[in-house]
């Protein structure tokens, strides 16, 4: 089945079985391995991507569902030279340890900040409760999302 969608700002057309998981399409067929598989059953959030700007679990989506959509993976969040402010904040606040949950958490945070530019710590904890992390204890991730929020605000006003 031929599917057309926009991936990280570029229109693409792929020929895949309609029941192929989006996660496999991205990782195996398109070599975008920044999207991770942690459980395959929608529990951990490591495979989070943005579909039309909203966070979605790519392990629970089938390729056919992408027709006509705008898809952003972690690779599409920043250019090679300039990181997204949320990514910068994750680095600065020590929110990255093993890093396996990081791409999903960054995308979930970007989604949150688009909807709620100044979330409280509790808002952040709720919004990221679908992104499991086994290393950090979440506190530094919450710090980073707050830091990202501040950076985005500063970027808008300057």
């Amino acid at each position: 089945m031929k599917i057309s969608f926009t991936l990280n700002g570029k229109k693409i057309r792929v020929d895949v079985p309609p029941d192929r998981r989006v996660l496999d399409l991205l990782r195996e067929d398109l070599s975008l391995t920044g999207t991770k598989e942690g459980c395959g059953t929608g529990e951990c959030g490591a495979c989070t991507i943005l579909v039309n700007g909203e966070s979605r679990l790519s392990c629970l989506m089938l390729a056919a569902q992408l027709e006509g959509c705008h898809v952003t993976t972690i690779e599409g969040v920043s250019s090679a030279k300039k990181l997204h402010p949320v990514q910068e904040a994750f680095i600065e606040h020590g929110a990255v340890q093993c890093g396996f949950c990081t791409p999903g958490a960054v995308l979930a945070a970007i989604d949150l900040l688009q909807r709620n530019a100044e979330p409280t710590r509790q808002d952040i904890r709720e919004a990221l409760s679908g992104n499991l992390c086994r290393c950090t204890g979440y506190q530094k991730i919450v710090d980073a999302v707050q830091g990202g929020s501040a950076k985005l605000k500063k970027g808008q006003t300057s």
Binding site: I74, L83, F100
Partner: peptide, 21 residues
């Protein structure tokens, strides 16, 4: 000091053992 691995990890660029096809 910010960890040196953080940059490649936030970009999704770090290759783990399961990232090879």
């Amino acid at each position: 000091i910010h960890r040196i691995d953080a940059r490649s990890k936030v970009r999704g660029a770090e290759k783990y053992a399961s990232d090879y096809y």
